[in-house]
Design a protein around this nucleic acid. Sequence first.
DNA 1: GTCCTATTTGGGAGTGGCTATGATTTGGGA
DNA 2: TCCCAAATCATAGCCACTCCCAAATAGGAC
Lengths: 199, 199
Amino acid sequence: MGLREKKADRTRRLLIDVAVELFFEYGFDQVTMEQIAEQAEIGTSTLYRYFPSKDLLLLAPLDLEGGLAGPLRDRPADEPIDLALGNAILEAARSYDSPERSTYILRIRDLIDHAPGPRARLWDTLAQESELLAEVIAERVGSPEVSAELRMTASLAMMVLGQAADAWRAGNQEASAVEYTHDALAMLASGAAIMPRVD
Amino acid sequence: MGLREKKADRTRRLLIDVAVELFFEYGFDQVTMEQIAEQAEIGTSTLYRYFPSKDLLLLAPLDLEGGLAGPLRDRPADEPIDLALGNAILEAARSYDSPERSTYILRIRDLIDHAPGPRARLWDTLAQESELLAEVIAERVGSPEVSAELRMTASLAMMVLGQAADAWRAGNQEASAVEYTHDALAMLASGAAIMPRVD
DNA sequence: GTCCTATTTGGGAGTGGCTATGATTTGGGA
DNA sequence: TCCCAAATCATAGCCACTCCCAAATAGGAC
């Protein structure tokens, strides 16, 4: 990694920090892109080079890219796919375990929930993640194409993680995110969640 | 329903028609709100009274409100909840059955897919629908509160419908939307879709 | 029919997200 | 040390969206 990339990375992180700080202080809508640029001491156009939209500036700290696909890739190759998926989901939840990180994430999710733009963008990003996950699953089970079944599997996994996160947030973090995720997985396996069916 | 509401309804439909026609002709980005207002012969501010955002103008024709919650409410009260849900999902899919309506919807979904704003807004709307569905389910099973299990059930149902719609679109409508939906439900019941689990 | 009033409509000004362009600077390799 | 490619930045401009206030309009009271 050359010097150029290193500097770009540092600038990127700085921009996120500055932006989030301002968002926390004044609220998402009340902060303009110009203010962020000024605070970070760069030009407004440059800010847009790093983040093509204000929404992404609020989503960036969540670090969603490969959130599930990555952990799945890291599972041992001989693990059955359903277990690998379950463990990947738990692993993804583990990244919220540290207290500082989790309060940080929660504050950001709060901002996102109250701003229609970023909130909508979040779903969109997760949908892309689901597609990526489906591809990784296909690769793992040796399927040449991403079938409807695999897409549903990926979607199911994303849903479990999302529901666990919601329950964790709603429960005021009485238990850890991992425990809520464990519960959500159990819910699916035990049939506690009703499955739609036809006769 | 008074005269005032009737006129408002007519205006609303007119606006959607005019907007969609322009979107089809020139593409979502290439059409300004001013053009739509002008074409519909109303003021721009008035247009914003009817549709608070351009995105919603493209989502409106999909008529998503209560898409699943409504059909579920219409199921007989003595039907077991899982069957009621499955049938509600099929019923929702049935609204795409007529050839004219389905091609119309498909063209709109195409536009949505290529415009980041409306696409993101769509997910957000579906998330709200999921929450609404969870409430209807809770009411039906006599649960005083919307539990995590019910939320997951609702989310599951929304997912099945969404996956079915995707498969239908990807399959170039060789079969009807209802058949694809039936397949998606079967996938879930038969275990063809892999379920994440832990040991 | 004719006021009267609440609601709807519409215009105009302004904000801010975002894009396009082109000039200037900067940093890394030869 | 020079050169070229990439990064930075200012400027101008578009358009979605908001605010505010004046004008029109429709429905009810008499």
